[in-house]
């Protein structure tokens, strides 16, 4: 099998320094919604300037280059052991080249490893064998500030009066947005998982955010809730950076999972506007970056 270390390094560079076009488009559109001369509008204009500058200079969009989350979809015949080693080698190299900030801190002894390689879980890698000839590696760099304002609810939740149904889901998601204020670097994107256990629920709430902005869940009930949550979140007037304004949430993605009869979890993953996710496809000899 082909050694992909250099291609993965390039994937990391692109993810850290070049915001995906669908996210950039949403941010540009939101400028017009904010009043001329307002602090909210000024914030969005600075954000757009920063996006252009990072791309031109290959410097990180945000100094917090986040938790690296890899999803590797591989055809039969690829070795996940080798791919993992290549991902880790690329991550170390990307840190040397300053595409990534050294971000792996030992939680017990407090030392920063300096190369973005922690234990087996850092970077986080999910492997999935697929029935295809193409290998696809997706990378999300998930910021820490927005991760800190992500929340998980166990329904029923008496504090917000949320029962075990979609009406209850709506209530807790809105509560999470209000509690986040600007601290997750609004305008944010919401990834919501309904069901699962505590672990799978959080994982799926991130996974759902790999899909493109504006695409809706196939289930019409969830599609409607996605749109409603984005609209109602914006009615709260939190605005970019929490300065106040019309743009608080750019999009909402929901996924439904199986749950135990006893449990009803709702996980809300909040992602900052610096919604960094990119894709690498290996199609035979061809290398394609999105």
């Amino acid at each position: 099998m082909k050694d992909l270390t250099n291609e993965i390094l390039e994937l990391i560079r692109r993810t850290s320094s070049s915001l995906p076009p669908d996210v950039e488009k949403r941010l540009r559109e939101s400028i017009e919604k904010e009043a001329p001369g307002s602090t909210a509008r000024g914030a969005l204009e600075t954000i757009v300037k920063n996006i252009e500058l990072s791309r031109a200079k290959s410097t990180p969009i945000c100094q917090d280059t986040g938790t690296p989350i890899f999803y590797v979809h591989y055809p039969l015949g690829w070795s996940t052991i080798k791919l993992k080693a290549q991902i880790r080698a690329a991550m170390e190299d990307a840190t040397k080249k300053n595409y990534m900030r050294p971000n792996a801190v030992d939680a017990v002894y407090d030392n920063n490893t300096g190369n973005n390689l922690g234990g087996d879980d850092f970077p986080y890698i999910h492997f999935e064998e697929i029935e295809s000839d193409d290998l696809v590696i997706e990378l999300m760099l998930k910021g820490g500030g927005c991760e800190n304002v992500s929340r998980q609810y166990s329904l029923p939740d008496n504090n917000v009066g949320a029962g075990r149904d979609l009406a209850g889901v709506r209530k807790v998601v809105l509560d999470a947005v209000q509690k986040a204020q600007g601290q997750g670097c609004a305008p944010g994107i919401l990834g919501v998982a309904i069901g699962g256990d505590r672990g799978s629920s959080y994982i799926k709430s991130k996974e759902v955010m790999f899909s493109e902005m504006g695409t809706r869940n196939d289930d019409p009930k969830l599609a409607e809730l996605e749109e409603q949550l984005t609209k109602e979140s914006n009615e709260m007037g939190i605005g970019p950076m929490g300065f106040g304004g019309k743009t608080t949430v750019l999009d909402t993605k929901i996924t439904g999972l199986s749950r135990l009869p006893a449990s009803y979890f709702v996980s809300v993953s909040y992602t900052c506007w610096a919604y960094r996710r990119r894709k690498l496809t290996i199609k035979g000899e061809e290398v394609i970056y999105d």
């Binding site: 300037k49 920063n50 990180p60 945000c62 801190v105 920063n112 300096g114 950076m241 506007w273």
Partner: peptide, 30 residues
């Protein structure tokens, strides 16, 4: 003073000099 979160490349341009560093053993970010 509130700065624009995430505008890291943009704000780095206003840093014209890095004259010293203390406690580098905390790690680069800290």
């Amino acid at each position: 003073f509130h700065a624009i979160g995430g505008a890291a490349s943009f704000l780095a341009q206003t840093v014209i000099n890095v004259s010293d560093v203390f406690k580098l053993d905390f790690g680069t970010p800290e």
